[in-house]
Design a binder for these strands. Structure first.
Length: 411
RNA sequence: GCCAGGGUAGGGUAGUCUGGUUAUCCUAAGGGGCUGUGGAUCCCUCGACCCGGGUUCAAAUCUCGGCCCUGGCCCCA
């Protein structure tokens, strides 16, 4: 039998409904903040991604050549494409641009819990606003969106200037190494690195800084930071808005184009791949030949959110099953039409089952049975049976529809 | 790329150590009886040893390779 490609998944209706429900909660929050959805191509010029992240990522992408000999790649992330689109299509649009996306991405990596080769990201990008309140808005939105999903998480907020300032006299190569070790909280390796440089007090400052939960203290450790006022303002807005976060000034976020605030979200029940959100302030547009523009954005690892939510994610659709005798089928079709017009998922027997077996099937798949037989045809009513409680009553069609609709809005 | 544990009907499983009858049980699915409560009950049916090589009279079972799954390492844009 044919298997699906490694690291991909099939989604059956139950799971799909759960995913759509969470997806729409995210969309709805983004919409309320004014972030409008955009869509970019599933594949792009390979160059777009190597310009952003370096040649090293080719090994972790789905790269192919098309029939015209173009080097293309399935998108491994969306930010680069969104910024390309901004430069191509929207450079002169009124600022700021508030955009969001929900899209699948592809990475050629070893699958494990919460990591798949095809995975979905829900992200937002705020383009062209360069202020403390802009940074704060994006973080507040991140918090709002994660809250809407119901996932349990920790939000960590940091800023690159602190570590950068402490390391300003260190060679770039070593800087990179130290930042990676701080990000991983690999203090053993960090001490080794610093020992070899003969700077014991730097180690002290760095480890204290990473653990530091107080902004003023952090400024004392890190020394004079030009962005101090903006950082204080941003954090002030977050505190005023009662955003739940903790300070983590060790966050490195891998790549060099991040310039300021950075933040990450972690689920507490996921194992090794527990990061469910990552983002920050970055400058990327100039890489793709645009004018330099400040941007801030984040992406939510949608699949990890779903794994973290587990079984709790699902909310079942209310289903009405029409149960009828063959003679009553035309009337039953009218009844079904009325239920469907009211927005109720309504199903009829297609298997030629007898009355009893229709009901038996309904009991497994529906919340209500709507019974239409000779008696109901004659009285122009329907018998509505609540399949959970077993109660039933013969009432008008309108009353039956109203009752099913009401039960759906409760659920 | 590395390490560990796995892969038996649609789902869940027994059997594997110690090779040997028609591969166990639950569930789901389909057909039939019953024809206004059948979420019951009775009868019937469908359906599996991941793939390939090796050992053997004989392989789900032992062995080698591959594929895939689960978790971890690495990486994580």
């Amino acid at each position: 039998m044919l298997q699906k490609p490694r690291g991909t998944r099939d989604f059956l209706p139950d799971e799909m409904e759960a995913r759509r429900a969470v997806e729409w909660r995210l969309r709805e929050v983004a919409r309320r903040w004014g972030y409008r959805e955009v869509c970019t191509p599933e594949f792009e010029d390979l160059e777009l991604f190597t310009m952003r992240s370096g040649e090293g990522i080719i090994g972790e992408m789905y790269v192919f050549e098309d029939k015209g000999g173009r080097k293309l790649a399935l998108r491994p992330e969306i930010t680069a494409a969104v910024i390309r689109m901004y430069i191509n299509e929207a450079k002169v649009a009124p600022k700021p641009l508030r955009w969001c996306y929900y899209a699948d991405c592809f990475r050629y990596e070893r699958p494990q819990k919460g990591r798949y080769r095809q995975f979905w990201q829900f992200g937002v990008e705020l383009i062209g606003a360069d202020s403390a309140i802009a940074d704060a808005e994006v973080i507040m939105l991140a918090s709002d969106m994660l809250n809407a999903t119901g996932v349990r998480y920790d939000l960590k907020v940091g800023h690159l200037s602190f570590v950068k300032n402490l390391l300003k006299d260190v060679e770039p190569e070593i800087q990179r190494k130290i930042r990676a070790q701080l990000d991983k909280k690999d203090f053993e390796g960090l001490n080794l690195t610093l020992d070899s440089m003969n700077k014991p007090d730097l180690a002290e400052s760095l480890t204290t800084l990473v653990a530091c939960q107080d902004l003023n203290e952090a400024f004392e450790i890190a020394g004079a930071i030009p962005e101090r006022e903006r950082i204080e303002q941003t954090m002030g807005y977050l505190d005023a808005a009662k955003v739940k976060y903790s300070l983590n000034l060790g966050i490195a976020r891998g790549l060099d184009y991040y310039t300021g605030i950075v933040f990450e979200g972690f689920a507490d029940n996921l194992g090794a791949e527990n990061q469910i959100l990552g983002g920050g302030v970055y400058r990327l547009a100039h890489l793709f030949g645009g004018d330099d523009v400040a941007s801030c954005g984040f992406a939510i690892g949608f699949d990890r959110v779903m794994v973290s939510l587990g079984e709790s994610a699902g909310k079942k659709d209310t289903v009405a099953a029409i149960v009828c005798t063959p003679e009553a089928r035309n009337r039953a079709l009218d009844v079904a039409k009325a239920f469907r017009s009211a927005g109720i998922r309504t199903e009829m027997d297609l298997m030629g089952r007898g009355f009893g077996q229709q009901l038996a099937h309904a009991a497994k798949s529906a919340a209500f049975a709507v019974i239409i037989g000779q008696r109901e045809v004659e009285s122009s009513e329907v018998t509505l049976k609540n399949l959970q409680s077993g109660e039933q009553k013969t009432i008008t069609l309108d009353a039956a529809v109203a009752e099913v609709v009401a039960s759906g809005s409760r659920g």
